[in-house]
């Protein structure tokens, strides 16, 4: 069975993403130990907590994450886990992210309810991307966030969401994928996305 490490920042609900990945056909472990991450096929950066705190918690694991990616491991960032992959974030001061995706994490502007909480529709720009295989344009997925990614590289953009303006819902490059929404909370659509990820990691 394909094995996934869910990186543990010590904050919030990691049980649901573990359960979701298990339903998708993978074995999932929740860990912050370098040697356990070394032995898996894919890494998930989950979506809970605040940027600075999460970054501090994963700092010792960053070399391992980069080594894993270079060695061909698939990576999925979810919500905050997606935001950590960008160049920098303005959440709680300016902080450097992993800079895998170029761009900045900014607060959702005034003029709407913040946080955005609830089900919003995907506008799929790259229907051939393997993460959205079988997902129809306009499918509802679950968001819960106060910050969004201002993406600089057009080719990385797989899908957008509209909350008064368009911003990235899914970005991807090579075997690295990230979603602003929570697939583990997005019903059957979310389960399909997790299954797609499990399929990607074994191919």
């Amino acid at each position: 069975m394909p094995k996934i490490a869910i990186v543990d920042y010590g904050l919030g609900n990691l049980r649901s993403i573990r359960k979701g990945l298990e339903r998708a056909g993978a074995e999932a472990i929740v860990t912050n130990e370098v040697h356990r991450i070394a032995e898996v096929d894919a890494i998930v950066l989950p979506g809970v907590g605040a940027f600075e705190e999460a970054l501090r918690n994963i700092k010792p694991l960053i070399p391992m994450i980069f080594q894993g990616i270079e060695g061909g491991k698939a990576l999925l960032g979810i919500c905050l886990g997606m935001q950590l992959l960008f160049t920098e974030s303005t959440e709680g001061g300016l902080h450097r992210g992993l800079n895998i995706f170029k761009g900045r994490i900014l607060p959702l502007p005034e003029g709407r309810k913040v946080p955005q909480i609830g089900w919003n529709t995907l506008k799929i720009l790259k229907p051939k991307n393997p993460l959205v295989k079988g997902i129809e344009n306009g499918s509802y997925v679950y968001f819960a966030h106060s910050y969004f990614a201002k993406n600089e590289v057009e080719e990385d953009l797989v899908a957008t969401v509209n909350y008064g303006f368009d911003f990235p819902a899914i970005v991807s490059r090579n075997r690295i994928f990230a979603t602003q929404f929570h697939p583990e909370k997005s019903g059957n659509i979310g389960l399909r996305i997790l299954k797609n990820f499990v399929e990607i990691m074994v191919t």
Binding site: L11, G12, V48, G49, A50, E53, L80, P115, I117, A144, H145, S146
Partner: peptide, 8 residues
């Protein structure tokens, strides 16, 4: 909200 995020 500082620890877990205001969204929760």
């Amino acid at each position: 909200s500082r620890i877990f995020g205001s969204q929760c």
